[in-house]
């Protein structure tokens, strides 16, 4: 019963051997689900004429989009409203990745557990570091775009010039802490669920549901919310 990221297949791409790992396949599955849902909703809404007072599917979709936009505006302020769709998409992707521990997943390894759950892609530091680096480069990019390279560099030597190394370390520490926070919480949850499912059957009656609720749902939603809110705060404070 191990929690590492099993290699599903290896593909050699012009001489370079590429390892297709479990978390890559799972994240492709999740991306497929999201793209499919978006396309289907688009087709359904296109055929019907959009009423002023939304009902049914249109109502659901509108409330979701409104919620994500208000979330962005309340964190980044009114003038950065155009970040809404991006951070909304990122939030939904990370949320679905965190919740994927609930879905029954493909079985890559003969683990002793009865039920093989999908291994959340965010339980892999490569995925979370990639997301954190997106935020890091957005922060620096928008900071330079908003303040110009000279002010941005001057911003690094904030109160006095001898503090420059500390500011640089502070900037580099952001992606590390962002990615390890998401990765650590989800991996911790996965390990605890995996360990728990190896207990004999009588322990699996009611308790796993409670564990799932805490680890997969509460921690998953909270970490997705925290990750996106911190990213928005870093980008918006870099632009101020």
């Amino acid at each position: 019963m191990d929690f590492s990221n099993h290699v599903v297949t290896t593909v050699n791409l012009f001489g370079f051997e590429l390892w297709i790992t479990e978390s890559m396949v799972n994240s492709w599955i999740i991306m497929g689900i999201l793209v499919l849902a978006a396309v289907i909703i688009r087709i359904i809404l296109q055929r019907r004429t959009l009423q002023a007072v939304p009902t049914g599917l249109q109502n659901v979709v509108e409330t979701i989009v409104e919620m994500l936009d208000n979330f962005t505006v309340s964190t980044m302020g009114e003038k950065h409203r155009n970040f809404g769709p991006f951070y909304g998409g990122m939030f939904i992707y990370i949320l679905l990745c965190n919740l994927s521990g609930l879905l029954p997943g493909p079985k890559y390894v003969e683990s002793a557990g009865y039920i093989q759950f999908m291994r959340p892609p965010t339980a892999d530091v490569a995925v979370t570091l990639a997301l954190a680096l997106i935020t890091f480069f957005m922060t620096q990019g928008y900071g330079i775009k908003a303040k110009g390279v000279k002010n941005w560099a001057k911003g690094l030597t904030e109160p006095m010039w001898p503090l420059t190394p500390l500011n640089v370390i502070g900037e580099l520490a952001n992606p590390v802490s962002l990615s390890f926070r998401l990765f650590g919480n989800i991996l911790g949850g996965t390990i605890i669920m995996g360990l728990y499912y190896n207990l004999p059957w009588f322990a699996l009656v009611g308790i796993p549901a409670a564990l799932h609720i805490y680890f997969d749902i509460f921690a998953g939603v909270l970490q997705a919310f925290i990750f996106v809110m911190l990213s928005m705060t870093f980008v918006s404070s870099a632009m101020e």
């Binding site: 309340s74 964190t75 302020g77 500390l166 370390i169 502070g170 520490a173 952001n174 590390v176 802490s177 911190l230 705060t233 404070s237």
Partner: peptide, 20 residues
Amino acid sequence: ARPATIVMLLGSAVAETSGI
């Protein structure tokens, strides 16, 4: 509300360095 949250996050990010 918003300034307090932003300042807290900024201060906590700096407080993170000794953990890093």
